[in-house]
Design a protein around this nucleic acid. Structure first.
Lengths: 96, 96
DNA sequence: ACAATAGGCAAGTAATGACTTGCCTATCAA
DNA sequence: TTGATAGGCAAGTCATTACTTGCCTATTGT
């Protein structure tokens, strides 16, 4: 749980989630290109790679290797669990 | 919006939100006491005060002065807007 | 009035995090 | 098999942030 909040704390990572929400299964270079063109973010490939690693560690992004490509997909499941922590106080199993 | 994510990034601040979700209208000293006793967190009064300021700036906590006391209340509204960002992609006004 | 209580302000420190650069590995196409 | 493409690893820098300490203001009880 801690990892999810920390992952969401950075605005660039939130942009990446936006990007993956809009179009699934993008490679690292695709994400790089879109961040610079669509969102005007100019940061190095390695910068984006590190952000993706954080998102993956938090369970917000799932990856699959295919040849020399690595595709990234959004997984919104951890967000739903967050939601239940303070918004649905009636449920018993909020032990995060 | 940015402030909300940054506020949620810190585990101590999340504990404070937990505490306020459990019992509303606590003063700074009450929150300090509960953090140390219930959650085993040992940090200074000023530390807690700064955390509360961050939460208040993010709109997650509302305060009201009453004599020499300042009471704190949880406001979950920003959380709802945050989570709609990736969980409900159908809604048009997700421009956060 | 005075001491105790509740809280605020500001500066300093130590740790965390974002980002870059340089180099290395793996896959594919010619 | 060689060159180009996709990605990974590791160290270094710079900014942010969490936390403390010391001192100051305001309210309350005796």
């Amino acid at each position: 749980m801690d990892d999810v909040f920390k992952a969401l704390a950075d605005p660039t990572r939130r942009r990446i989630l936006d990007e993956l929400a809009e179009r699934d299964s993008q490679s690292l270079f695709e994400i790089c290109a879109r961040l610079t063109t669509k969102h005007g973010l100019g940061l190095s490939r390695q910068g984006v790679s590190q952000h993706l690693a954080v998102l993956e560690a938090a369970g917000l992004v799932r990856t699959r290797r295919q040849g020399r490509y690595k595709f990234h997909d959004l997984d919104p499941e951890p967000l739903e669990r967050i939601l239940n922590r303070w918004l649905r106080p009636d449920m018993p199993e909020n032990t995060q």
